[in-house]
Write a protein that binds this DNA or RNA. Structure first.
Lengths: 169, 169
DNA sequence: CCTATCATGTAATCCGTTACATGATTAT
DNA sequence: ATAATCATGTAACGGATTACATGATAGG
């Protein structure tokens, strides 16, 4: 218990999701990630098995294993985990994202703009449409964080659409 | 020579930079990355030693080692390397970036918006100003890829500024 | 002349990805 | 029933980050 590990964004994602769920199995985490969060911060499903184990070993999660058939592992956030999560949430960050866009990278290194724009534009348009649809469906009661995140996604997708249109012109 | 390795974005960045330089040492690559590209796709300096070695072992780069004092390693792109780079450049991608923004992640998980916005806004404003200054300095002869990348950066930084202003309001 | 910083590199660790594998359900 | 797909998980590998380390150069 409580060996010192470094907490990565993945760690906080797992902590945050388990905390929100109360209790969760890796597979359930996978579902949640796939249903939204994964669009702006994806995690391989194998990580959702490995990371809770790490966190449990360090005392941030408590594991309960099913006795019968599947022997699924269910995880809960411990007091230490809740504290770590809160500490992270309460610490505003000045860290900046990098774009790290594969298409842009090619452009940077001299790829021909037109075909790239032709490939990129429709996928961004589609994703933008998805986000906007989601946003409309969002109820009044939706948590502010979720709404903000979606709005950030929409803003950046609009920017990409604008960008690739210009590049393709 | 020519063992099969997987080429990652890092690989193409190294190939692209070495190709542009004609010949380069890891340290020179580090300089180049630090002076611009790193803002939207950073690479740890240790990678700039490891990756050329990998690429050389696979036949994409040729290594020349200094005889005297420092015994620096100088790399050049081979024909195979040039072919790989061109293949990558010529293949338009539909891949999408994820936002993966640390601040947004906290917001998503329920961090208090105000302090986050307060921390994020100034750094984005500063970066935006930097980009805009760079853009002004860009000569007529600047490669299109560089110009586009910078413009993408500007667009997204504007979006972040707008976003965090709204979040903070 | 001394020390701080820049230049240059290697080693160790670990997270994340990819590949592999098998038990349960649903559809045909 | 049988195939196909979903559910659930483990193992292996490798790229990326962090830590460690030393030689050169410039400033005080």
């Amino acid at each position: 218990m409580s060996s010192k590990i470094r907490l990565t964004p993945t760690s906080y994602i797992v902590l945050g999701l388990v905390e929100a769920a109360g209790e969760a199995t890796p597979y359930e985490l996978k579902q949640v990630v796939a249903s939204g969060l994964g669009d702006f911060w994806s995690i391989q499903h194998a990580q959702l098995y490995a990371e809770p184990e790490r966190l449990a070993a360090a005392g941030y999660l408590k594991e309960r294993r099913e006795e019968s058939g599947r022997r699924r592992r269910h995880y809960k956030v411990t007091a230490a985990g809740r504290k770590a999560l809160k500490g992270w949430l309460d610490e505003p960050t000045e860290e900046l994202t990098e774009l790290r866009d594969p298409g842009l990278l090619k452009l940077f290194f001299g790829a021909t703009p037109k075909p790239l724009a032709t490939a990129q534009l429709p996928v961004h348009e589609r994703r933008l449409a998805d986000y906007e649809a989601l946003h409309k469906e969002l109820g009044e009661d939706a948590p502010a964080g979720i709404r903000f995140s979606l709005e950030a996604g929409i803003g950046h997708e609009r920017e990409w659409v604008r960008f690739w249109k210009q590049v393709g012109a």
